[in-house]
Nucleic acid binder design. Structure first.
Length: 273
DNA sequence: GAAAGTGTTGAAAG
DNA sequence: TCTTTCAACACTTT
């Protein structure tokens, strides 16, 4: 259930295993052909065979492999994990892709809920069309956030989860950012003052950077790579803390549902206008 | 033992 | 166009 900091941590971990490698073959495991989006396993293998991977990087929650011709994008969705080997404790039925390199090393994709997908693109234009700016990039300015919110009639929390608005924020970091900025998750975007919008802008960047520094948040089974864990869960203020005291004012954290997503906030610090 | 919950996303329906 | 609901899947918790 990786969001931007988790995906970045995966990229940071695997760069040294993947960059500069030449692909020998790619195939689905356990008959899970759906793991490759809109392309057959045979066709994808044909496209990728003998291609060099020049760069591993992240865009939104996608892991991108730059190839000689085209791009491979991997989305971990809820439970996807990359591994360089199969561990003793692994259930083999959870593995959905094996990528072999010509130097004899392997890259495995393990995904017990099977929501994760691999995409092949000739160019990244299709992907870019679905994604807003990087929240840690130069296009995500205070102006961008303020003007985007002004134009939106809906609630702030679902807006933060909208990847076309900002790429990479998910449920954990949306809740944490709103708590830090002291904004109610149901507040209408267009009612958010410039002061609060600026506070939110700063909160998003601070929290994402700090989370990357801790290799993301492992709650159940996220791993930045092989068996490593992210330990940002130790620094969460509201996510998963319903009925615990708010770290700021000791009021009990509430949990509500917004657009089918669990949403945690402090009813005292985060007041609606 | 059945039902509900889980960090994501996109398609379908309103 | 926008928001809401549901489905994809497997496992854990209630």
């Amino acid at each position: 259930m990786p969001e931007l900091p988790e995906v970045q941590s995966v990229v940071n971990h695997f760069r040294k295993y993947v960059e500069g490698q030449k692909i020998q073959s790619v195939k689905p495991l356990n008959e899970w052909n759906k793991v490759f989006h809109s392309i057959s396993p045979t066709k994808l293998n044909h496209k990728l065979k003998s291609q060099n991977i020049s760069k591993l990087w992240r865009r939104g929650k996608y892991i991108i492999l730059d190839l000689d011709q085209g791009y491979l994008a991997i989305h971990l969705r809820m439970t996807g994990r990359l591994q360089t080997k199969i561990n003793k404790t692994d259930h083999l039925k959870h593995f959905t892709v094996l990528m072999k390199f010509e130097n004899g090393t392997n890259l495995y994709f393990k995904d017990y809920r099977k929501f994760g997908r691999w995409y092949y693109f000739e160019t990244l234009s299709k992907l870019e069309a679905k994604l807003g700016p990087e929240p840690l990039g130069s296009a995500f300015t205070r102006q961008f956030l303020k003007e985007g919110l002004q134009r939106s009639p809906g609630m702030i929390k679902p807006k933060l989860l909208n990847q076309k608005f900002i790429a990479g924020i998910g449920n954990i970091y949306a809740d944490e950012s709103l708590w830090t900025a002291r904004i109610h998750p149901m507040e209408k975007c267009c009612n958010i003052s410039t002061v609060k919008s600026n506070r939110l802008h700063q909160a998003i960047q601070e929290i994402l950077n700090k989370a990357i520094g801790h290799k993301g948040t492992t709650i159940i089974n996220f791993s930045p790579g092989d068996e490593a864990r992210g330990n940002f869960a130790n620094y969460l203020n509201v996510f998963g803390k319903s009925n615990e005291p708010c770290p700021r004012c000791k009021t009990l954290i509430q949990k509500i549902f917004l657009g089918q997503r669990g949403t945690h906030f402090c009813p005292r610090c985060q007041k609606k206008r």
